[in-house]
């Protein structure tokens, strides 16, 4: 009998991540690429790359998706489980660190805090609309200062007297930063000031009212940035652990959940196979005229077959089996 491997895909708004796990929950391979606003093409690209990594005596036993585009990704690859990012991150973290009590996660567009006690999620928080506590905040400010995001951390670590920057909102931070620049503060000090602003903002918003206790692990793309790690350690006055594969923890979690699902049900996977990377999917949107809401419905089609529709406020277009094939009374806008 062939061994099983499990696939997890995490499609976020900024990056797309993929992890391949063995039956013994060992990471076999992983990928981390930008989403670039084209999730389908990037998923196909990932699938092409990861297919070559599967050991010859193994086959896919299950697949899971997570991230903000989890439903789309799930539809394309034929996922067995579709899970939200919070659960996926918690599952991955407790696998590697069974005694973890707090997970800090900062991604491109959102940030979360997950409180875990006895390997059970007991509380969580997510950033609201504002992006001030996320990776894109740093990207944006680095761009303003003409520093590449790769140099960001090493430059910031040189800081001796960090500047205090208001971090409530990108707009405030930006005007404050420009002001500090004009006052002649050095770039490393400003950069580290930004890191501290992000951390403060994170603790005061996402982490408000949460009891942040050791052991703390920090995951997500922003954990690449050593300066942020240092700022967290200073702010919380404790040690922060960064897992080796912090950037793909969501995907690892999705893979583990797919495996748990397989172990529990023993069902054959729905996985569509790696051939999907060569299929051309068609996405289009149309405006539903069913009510004054005029929702923009996005649909994913393979040839003539509608695979999925989403984006409506109501359930009208959601269940493919319930609806006629062509959207009646709707204007297809391409």
């Amino acid at each position: 009998m062939q061994k099983k491997v499990f696939l997890g895909i995490d499609v976020g708004s900024v990056t797309t991540k993929c992890a391949l796990m063995s039956e013994d929950i060992e990471l076999i391979a992983h990928r981390y690429i930008p989403t670039s606003g084209k999730p389908i093409i990037q998923i196909q690209k990932l699938m092409r790359e990861i297919s070559s990594e599967i050991p010859s005596d193994c086959e896919i036993g299950g697949a899971g998706t997570t991230g903000s585009a989890r439903y789309l990704a799930g539809e394309i690859i034929g996922a067995d489980v579709i899970k939200n990012e919070i659960t996926a991150h918690a599952v991955a973290a407790t696998h590697f660190y069974p005694d973890v009590r707090t997970i800090l996660e900062i991604g491109g567009q959102d940030s979360k805090i997950i409180i875990i006690r006895d390997a059970v999620v007991t509380d969580f928080g997510m950033n609201t609309v504002c992006a001030a506590g996320t990776g894109s905040f740093l990207d944006h400010q680095a761009l303003r200062l003409g520093i590449s995001i790769n140099e960001f951390a090493s430059e910031a670590m040189k800081s001796k007297n960090p500047v205090r920057i208001a971090g409530r909102c990108t707009v405030f931070a930006e005007s404050d930063m420009i002001h500090k620049q004009q006052m002649g503060h050095s770039t490393p000090d400003i950069l580290y000031g930004l890191c501290q602003a992000l951390v403060r903002n994170y603790i005061n918003n996402v982490g408000l009212g949460k009891s942040i206790e050791k052991p703390i692990i920090f995951q997500g793309g922003v954990a690449f940035n050593q300066a942020i790690v240092r700022a967290f350690e200073e702010e919380l006055a404790t040690e922060i652990m960064v897992p080796e594969h912090h950037e793909v923890m969501g995907a690892i979690g999705a893979a583990i959940i797919a495996m748990e699902n397989y172990n529990a049900t023993g069902k054959k996977t729905h996985f569509n196979g790696f051939s999907i990377s060569d299929i051309s999917y068609e996405t289009s949107t149309f405006t539903c005229n069913g009510c004054p809401n005029q929702c923009e419905i996005a649909q994913l089609k393979l040839g003539e077959k509608v695979l999925a529709r989403w984006g409506g406020r109501c359930e009208k277009w959601e269940y493919i089996s319930n609806i006629s094939e062509s959207p009646e009374g709707a204007v297809v806008t391409g």
Binding site: T87, V121, T122, M126
Partner: peptide, 24 residues
């Protein structure tokens, strides 16, 4: 609705886990 649905999913997962007493 996307952001709200993620929260609702995570929330229901969380309370289901709490009830079951384990993560899986």
């Amino acid at each position: 609705k996307a952001g709200m649905i993620t929260r609702l999913e995570a929330f229901t997962d969380m309370i289901a886990m709490k009830k079951a007493g384990c993560l899986s």
